[in-house]
């Protein structure tokens, strides 16, 4: 996770809260949250190697498929649920979004913006696009349901998810005037606090 993105997430998550990170990877974000915000944190991950990294890092991790298991995390007393660059890897992202808002009072979602100009150029060239945020080739990408910022915010409106805060980040990992003014074209990533 870019340092700017991480500092935004850190800023939004209250100290001493109980956090679940869906798609926690090697547990780096949770480790930082535990160290700096004293959270009680759990990760959900399905990749055995990343799970091993979590265990080696001393991070509590649950080996599960998010699509299947997310509803089981309701009523567990989570204050915040995080889904960082994971939503596009799910088979049923809308279902996951509906559930995640019942898992915790607030959710932090980050997503790569498929509408970014660099990716649009790729499509114009007649090739599946790639970027620093989306480096994998079409045949090996884990992304199943890529969306643009406009798509995601449309889903939030349709489903009446309240976006409490949002920040758009450019390709350099910084917030900029262009990315804020024309996010769907210039933002490479977006981060949302949804309640």
């Amino acid at each position: 996770m870019d340092s700017q993105l991480q500092s935004i997430v850190l800023d939004w998550i209250p100290s001493n809260s109980k956090v679940v990170d869906f798609g926690c990877g090697d547990g780096t974000l949770l480790k930082t949250l535990i160290k700096k915000k004293f959270v009680t944190g759990y990760g959900v991950e399905n990749d055995p190697e990343k799970i091993n990294d979590c265990i080696a890092n001393g991070i509590s991790v649950i080996q599960q498929d998010i699509d299947i298991s997310i509803q089981n995390y309701k009523g567990m007393g989570f204050d915040v649920a995080v889904m960082a660059s994971s939503i596009q890897c799910l088979r049923r992202p809308r279902n996951a979004m509906r559930n995640i808002l019942q898992v915790a009072n607030e959710c932090v979602i980050t997503l790569p913006n498929f509408g970014n100009w660099e990716l649009r150029l790729g499509i114009l060239n007649g090739k599946m696009p790639s970027s620093a945020q989306l480096p994998a080739k079409w045949y090996e990408t884990k992304n199943l349901h890529l969306c643009t910022i406009a798509d995601f915010e449309e889903l939030c409106r349709e489903e009446s998810f309240t976006i409490k805060k949002k920040v758009y980040i450019n390709r350099a990992g910084k917030s900029s005037w262009l990315a804020s003014r024309f996010p769907n074209l210039f933002a490479a990533q977006a981060v949302y606090l949804i309640g």
């Binding site: 109980k18 979590c54 080996q63």
Partner: peptide
């Protein structure tokens, strides 16, 4: 056990 451990807020990992 794992889900109860999460509810209890204790450090616990589950692997299959």
């Amino acid at each position: 056990i794992q889900m109860s451990a999460i509810k209890a807020g204790i450090d616990s990992s589950y692997v299959e």
